[in-house]
Design a protein around this nucleic acid. Structure first.
Lengths: 183, 183
DNA sequence: TTTTATGTTCAGTTCATATTGAATTGAATT
DNA sequence: AATTCAATTCAATATGAACTGAACATAAAA
């Protein structure tokens, strides 16, 4: 809990979320760096920091972690852990591995990132692009006036449609490319 | 289609920013729709709504608009208009056309979106990817422990490096693709 | 049944970010 | 030099997404 003013000049970023506990300093440092890494990626993708932190801490652990262990290693609330885990399970970023002698769920990163990336591309980009296209169709029909001004507006909308079309065509290419074998 | 009940139902979102003034209702509706369109795109890219609204209102006007006209058509403050215009000029989304008989600046959308898109790809994506790569290098050297656990962590990091590498290779392809002539 | 362990929910709070607008700047005009 | 007006700045404020934590749910153990 103690989240008081720090006495050292630690980076005031996300790595503050990582609690030392009684683990080896090198392990803690590694965890903090991983959490930071995913936090900055998450920032780009519009994902909450706490979610990134959870993923980072699980990623940094060679063995699967329980809810309680995640809670202990991160300075975020039970509620946030619960909701963050839900999000990460929903998008397939984490998978549960059940240890039969204990009823606590254990989480480990799902390294099949193909699916993760595909999901992102389809859910955010493709959706937005498709919705945008039909909106542009409507707009083109609703151009006000009928003189040269209207012509100019139509020209602009056509230009937007062109870009949308290119982006839509690029998406499948990107998906294919990202699927290629390492090398 | 999956459109809500009424076709003229005003989404109570961003189009509220558009002020009717004394322009033709069809023009106002068109403006509101354009503002909405750019607002949802901006949302994806992490750009403030007011900035998107300004771009939308300028895009929806066949002729260039002055600061005062933009302010009159949108329900946002002078300060937001000023700051939004600055951002849009900086990224090259708007260009100024000077009308010699008046000293007010006039703005019109810069339809050379190539540059805009290139800027976005380079500044946000490429930067993040390059920074990420070097962070991964560091992390690989800082893997704690030396047994099988360390090997597992190295395996995970290698996997991340692979994805980063693919994404970095994809960027130039995307740039080229988006540059192709319409068709 | 009661207790304990584990996880979830959600009403309220926090805090980062967007927005505001009074004060200011500076260029053109008189 | 004083006035006017377009535009900018920035401290103050508003907004809302993310976070918290107490209450609640569920299931195994006692």
């Amino acid at each position: 809990m103690a989240n008081k003013a720090t006495q050292s000049a630690k980076p005031d970023s996300v790595s503050r979320l990582v609690l030392p506990g009684n683990r080896a300093p090198s392990q803690v440092a590694f965890e903090a760096a991983m959490v930071d890494f995913f936090a900055s990626a998450a920032d780009l993708l519009g994902v909450p920091k706490s979610v990134a932190a959870i993923y980072g801490i699980v990623f940094a652990s060679p063995g699967p972690l329980s809810f309680a262990e995640i809670e202990a290693r991160l300075d975020i609330s039970k509620g946030s852990v619960s909701q963050g885990l839900r999000v990460l399970r929903e998008v397939g970023a984490l998978k549960e591995v059940s240890k039969d002698d204990d009823r606590a769920e254990l989480f480990t990163p799902d390294l099949e990132m193909r699916k993760l990336i595909q999901r992102f591309l389809e859910n955010r980009l493709q959706k937005q692009l498709v919705a945008g296209s039909s909106r542009l169709d409507s707009l083109l029909k609703a151009v006000p006036g009928q003189n040269g001004d209207a012509a100019e507006l139509r020209r602009r909308l056509k230009s937007l449609q062109d870009w949308h079309s290119k982006a839509r065509k690029l998406l499948p290419l990107a998906k294919t490319f990202l699927k290629l074998a390492p090398g």
